[in-house]
Design a protein around this nucleic acid. Sequence first.
DNA 1: CAGCCACAGATTGTGGAATAATTCAATAAT
DNA 2: ATTATTGAATTATTCCACAATCTGTGGCTG
Lengths: 215, 215
Amino acid sequence: MTTAPEPIERVSAVEALLRILRARILDGELAPGSRLVERELTERFDVARHTLRAALRSLAAEGLVVIEPDRGARVKALAAAELGPLFELRTALEVEASRLALARHGGRLPATVHQAVQHLVAVCAGSPAWSAVTAAHDDVHHAIVTAAGSPRIEAAYDALAAELQVFLIQMRPEWSMPRMAKHHQTLLRDLEASGPDALRAHIADGLQSVLRASH
Amino acid sequence: MTTAPEPIERVSAVEALLRILRARILDGELAPGSRLVERELTERFDVARHTLRAALRSLAAEGLVVIEPDRGARVKALAAAELGPLFELRTALEVEASRLALARHGGRLPATVHQAVQHLVAVCAGSPAWSAVTAAHDDVHHAIVTAAGSPRIEAAYDALAAELQVFLIQMRPEWSMPRMAKHHQTLLRDLEASGPDALRAHIADGLQSVLRASH
DNA sequence: CAGCCACAGATTGTGGAATAATTCAATAAT
DNA sequence: ATTATTGAATTATTCCACAATCTGTGGCTG
């Protein structure tokens, strides 16, 4: 018998650099709007210029970085005006994902989603760091999208979530912990009771709170 | 008085190459699955190797090209099994787009969409080349998405449409012209009468016909 | 002082070549 | 038939060079 092929991890220099830069951007170390100067980064990570440029180009395609001709790359800084369209796309993905998820599981959402919500509730009960709350919150929505079992929707959603996180990282939202918890318990109930459209209002709510937090 | 600043078009070598390669892929000259050997392409377009590699990397991020480490790039060839997930994403985008479009125009679709359908009907009436039919057909769906006025949904849809075209280019679908025309007139009526969900069945139909055509 | 110009330094865009590493196909060996 | 070996082709990465572009500074002019 043949055992299942277990591919070992081999990362090229570009790929490794890509992951590092992505992580640095997503955790806020490379702040939105900040310039990504080639010489600095090549020295810091000890890679050749072309290697760095390849990584930057991928990040640009991902939407995490903006490249302007002859002016270099900088971490993408979303303007408030761009949030609306971004949330429209998010709505498109997440509503359809929840529809698929419900259809796949006979009108209910799978245990993974329920667990994610329970975890969010548990986190909110204490007095956690905000980063822990956002992580748990993102898990909930990610669990919903994953439950759809549609890899393409999931991939698109992940890219979007990363882009949004770059924006969110620079501000403190204004949700209270108990409200965050309750809101998502309600969402879950509504989704299973009245279908995917329950997400629409929920996401709109999220946009409003983000807009308020960004003054 | 100052005239409105009109930025002139300045394309870098990478950008120019990117456009050429994209066009070659989308019109089928570079067939799905075919290898993109660096030496060949650099000689053909007289660019440096790194310039080409940068363009390929962007195309990979777009989904038109697949890059495997140490094995180079090839034009992406979609397997039939990947069509389902791709159409799920397409459904997510187009259904939400049509919802926004209807909301923006008081429950109707704007003239651009009606014109696009009329054009498709006119094209189908003759005995046109298949490429003319697909072009007119793509215009209809693109008009619907554009009518939503959501740049992010539109961008995602365009990327998807390009990816799908790479797949479709290699086969002759089996829609009859009159059926194509009638089907979209019905779609338009249903959209305005009963809302965005009318698209769901329409897209599912499209997937079925593609799957049948691909044996 | 505001605005314009010119210049120098810094940074990016592209090219070219060299070397290491990897793949792939063909052949030889077990 | 399977496994090794060999070698050519191709990709991955680096280093260097140079032109084009951007940016800030200082001086000049009105």
